[in-house]
Computed example of a mutant assay.
Amino acid sequence: MTPPELVIFDCDGVLVDTETVANQRLSAIIAEHGLDLTMAQCRKRFMGRTMKSVRDILLEEEGIDLGADFPDRWLAGLPDLFSAGVEAIPHVREVILYLNAIDTPYCVASSAKVEKMHLTLGVSGLLPLFENVLYSAWMVEKGKPAPDLFLFAASELGHPPERCAVIEDSPAGALAGKAAGMRVFGYTADPLTDAEGLADAGAILFDDMRALPALLGLR
C-alpha cells in the first residue's frame, strides 16, 4: 500500500470522545419539539452532519422547526455541555506524534465549526497539535456526505486527493471521503458506531488507533 501524503482526521468520535454527550443533548432538544428519538437514534441519523443540516433534515422530514439560529444556539451551549471535560480518543495522541516524527502531514476536516473544534480539542489537550490545520464544513458549499470539505482541505495543503487518507467514524463522512477519491478508514471502537454503514460506504474498518499507522502503510 502506498503511504498517503496527507492524513485527514474527522474530529468528533475520531479525535475526541464527544458523540454520546452531544447526542444526548440533541435528543432532549428534539423531544422538546415533539419527536422522541433516543440518543442512539440521533447518532445514527445525524452523525457526521452539520447542525444546519440537522435543522434542515428535521424541518423537511418531520416538520420540526428548530429555528434559523439553531446552529448558533447549539454552538453557544457547547461550553456548558463539555464543562465536565472531553477525553481524547485512546492512543490518538500517540498516532499524531508519530505522524509528526515521520514528517507525514495531517489535518482535521469536521462538520463542526472551528470554534467548536477549538473548544473540544482544547479541553482534551490536543489543540496544540492541530490548531493551524482545522477545516470546517462551514468553509465550503456542501458538507458531508458531499466531498467538498475533504477536497478543500487537500487543496489548501497542496496534496492530490488520490494521495490522501481519511479517518472517519460516520457513514456520511466515509461517503464524502470516497466521493473525493480518497482512501477511507472507519474507526469503530465505540459500540454505537454504525460499523455496517461505514463498511457499506467503502471504509476499511479498525477499532484500535494503534493499528492506524500500519494500515496506512506508514509503519
Rank of each mutant, 00 (worst) to 15 (best):
A172D: 03
S53F: 02
E162H: 12
P213L: 13
L59M: 07
I204T: 15
W74S: 11
F82V: 06
E162W: 01
M139R: 01
G13T: 12
V108Q: 05
L151V: 10
P145V: 14
T2W: 00
P4G: 04
L127C: 04
F82P: 01
E5F: 00
A165M: 09
E60W: 00
V92A: 05
L26T: 08
D65W: 06
P128N: 11
D10A: 06
L121S: 04
K52D: 15
V86E: 01
V140W: 05
G67V: 08
F130C: 04
D207F: 00
M1T: 06
S170P: 00
A154E: 06
E141A: 13
F70R: 13
G85P: 05
A203I: 03
S124E: 02
T120S: 13
I29Y: 10
M117D: 02
V14C: 13
D190G: 09
G202S: 07
G181S: 09
K178A: 12
C11M: 13
E162S: 08
W74Y: 15
A199K: 14
R210Q: 12
L66P: 10
V114F: 01
A109R: 01
R219N: 09
A68H: 12
L97M: 10
V16G: 11
I167H: 04
G143Q: 10
I57P: 00
N132S: 15
G63Y: 09
E94I: 03
M39Q: 14
I8L: 15
P147H: 08
D65G: 02
V95Y: 00
M182R: 00
M117S: 07
S111N: 07
R73I: 12
I30P: 01
S83D: 12
A172S: 13
G13C: 11
D56N: 13
R55C: 13
M139G: 02
V140F: 07
P4R: 06
A176V: 11
L175M: 14
G34C: 11
A88W: 03
I167Q: 06
N100P: 01
A176I: 12
A153K: 08
M117Q: 08
F152H: 15
A180I: 13
Q41S: 13
L119F: 01
P171Y: 11
F130L: 15
E131L: 03
A180R: 08
T120M: 06
R219Q: 12
I89G: 08
V14F: 10
A165Y: 01
K52T: 15
V133H: 09
D10P: 03
D36R: 10
K44P: 00
G125K: 02
A179Q: 09
L218C: 11
C164F: 02
V166W: 03
T38R: 02
I102R: 11
V21W: 00
H91C: 06
F70E: 09
K113I: 09
Q41M: 09
E61F: 02
A199D: 04
Y106E: 10
T38Q: 05
A22E: 10
M39F: 00
A154P: 03
L127K: 02
G48H: 09
F152G: 04
A201D: 08
T193F: 03
V114N: 10
V184P: 04
V140G: 06
A211T: 14
L15R: 07
D169T: 06
C42S: 10
